[in-house]
Design a protein around this nucleic acid. Structure first.
Lengths: 174, 174
DNA sequence: CCTGAAGTTCATTTAGGATTGAACAAAAGA
DNA sequence: TCTTTTGTTCAATCCTAAATGAACTTCAGG
C-alpha cells in the first residue's frame, strides 16, 4: 500500500512526513483547547481531522490517535454538538466520514452556544437566589448590609454585560 | 464576640445568615470559574473576599474556606497577577488585607493578559513550525498537499482574528 | 541576636474529570 | 433468522492538575 518512496511508513500506509505533520497539528489543537477547557481527546480528534486532506472514518480516527472507541464516540458527539465537524456520507462503505468545519464563525458560535450560554442562562437564576440571601442578612452593621446589597448589584451588572458581549463576538467572527 | 441575637454563630463570630450568604457567593464564583478554567480554590478566595463587606486577612480567608496556607498563598498570587484583588494595608496589625477589585474591565483585561495573551503569543511561533512541516510534506497527491497548505493558511487567519478580538473585548468592558 | 508570627515554596498526596473497555443496540446482508 | 460491522453507553480505572503540609524565609518586636 506504500508509495514507491524510501520513506518509512506506519500502519495504514502513511508516510513519516505526513504522520509528523499530523502529530504537530494535533499537539497544536490539544494545547489550544486546554485554554478553553475542552478535553484532550476532543481536541485531538478535531486536530487529526483538520490535518487530513480527505474526510476520515470513525476507525481511522481511532487508529491514528490510539484512542478507544468510547473516547472517539464521545469526542465526536461533543464536536457535532459544537458543529465543528460535518458528516459526509462516504459512498465507499457504510461508515460515516468526518470533515472539519473550516468557518471560524461556526466554531466560535457553536462553542459559545454549547459551553458558555448554558452557564450564563443558569447564572441568572442563581443570581436571584443570591440576592434573596443578601436581603436576609440583618445581623451585620447596617453599613455592611448595604455594602453586600451593593455587591449583588455589581454582580447583576456583570452578568448583563457578559450576556451582551456574546452577540458582539459572534458578529465580529461573522 | 457575637451580637446580641438568637442566631447560631460559627467560629469567628459570624452569624448563620452571613455564613449562608458567603457560601452561596463562593459557590457561584467557583462554578463560574470552572467555565474559564480557574482552579476552585482561586475562585473560592475571590468569592469569600467579594462576599465580605470589609477587607479580609490571609488568616481569615484560610479559616473561612478551610483552605491550607499553601493553597491560600498560591491562590492569592494568581489573583494578584490577574489584578482581581487589591491589597489594603491594615493599620490594625501587620498582616495585609485583601479587597476585591470591583471593576469588570480590570478583571477581564487582567484575565486576558495573564491567561490568554501568552497562549496567543506562543501560538504564533508554533504556527510557523507547523507551516514548515506542511511544506515538507511531499508524499501525497499534489492536490492533497495543496489542501494541507490551505488549511495552514486558515489556521494563520484564525490566529490573526483571535489576536484582533482581544482589544475589542477590552474596549467593550471599558 | 533571639523569638515568633506571617507568608512562601515545593515535594507528596488526593480528588475528580478523562479515558477505557466490555456489554449493548442498530442495521445491513447472507 | 443469524451474523457481522458500526457505533453507543456507562461503570470502573487511570492520570493529572489541584490541594496539602512541612520546611523554609522574612521581618517586626523585645
Amino acid at each position: 500500500m506504500s508509495k514507491s518512496t524510501a520513506a518509512l511508513v506506519r500502519a495504514g500506509g502513511r508516510a513519516v512526513d505526513v504522520v509528523d505533520f499530523e502529530a504537530a497539528v494535533v499537539d497544536f489543537f490539544v494545547d489550544t483547547a486546554e485554554v478553553i477547557g475542552l478535553p484532550k481527546s476532543v481536541a485531538a480528534i478535531y486536530g487529526i481531522v483538520f490535518a487530513a486532506p480527505a474526510p476520515l472514518s470513525f476507525a481511522e480516527i481511532s487508529e491514528r490517535l490510539h484512542l478507544s472507541k468510547g473516547s472517539v464516540s464521545q469526542g465526536l458527539k461533543v464536536l457535532r454538538e459544537i458543529g465543528a465537524l460535518k458528516e459526509v456520507s462516504a459512498s465507499v462503505d457504510r461508515s460515516e466520514r468526518f470533515a472539519p468545519d473550516l468557518e471560524l464563525r461556526a466554531l466560535v458560535t457553536g462553542f459559545l452556544r454549547a459551553k458558555v450560554q448554558p452557564h450564563l442562562k443558569e447564572g441568572g437564576g442563581r443570581l436571584q437566589a443570591l440576592r434573596a440571601k443578601a436581603e436576609k442578612v440583618d445581623s451585620l452593621p447596617l453599613e455592611h448590609c448595604r455594602a453586600l446589597r451593593g455587591r449583588m448589584d455589581k454582580l447583576a451588572a456583570w452578568h448583563r454585560k457578559g450576556r451582551s458581549v456574546i452577540p458582539l463576538i459572534t458578529k465580529f467572527f461573522g
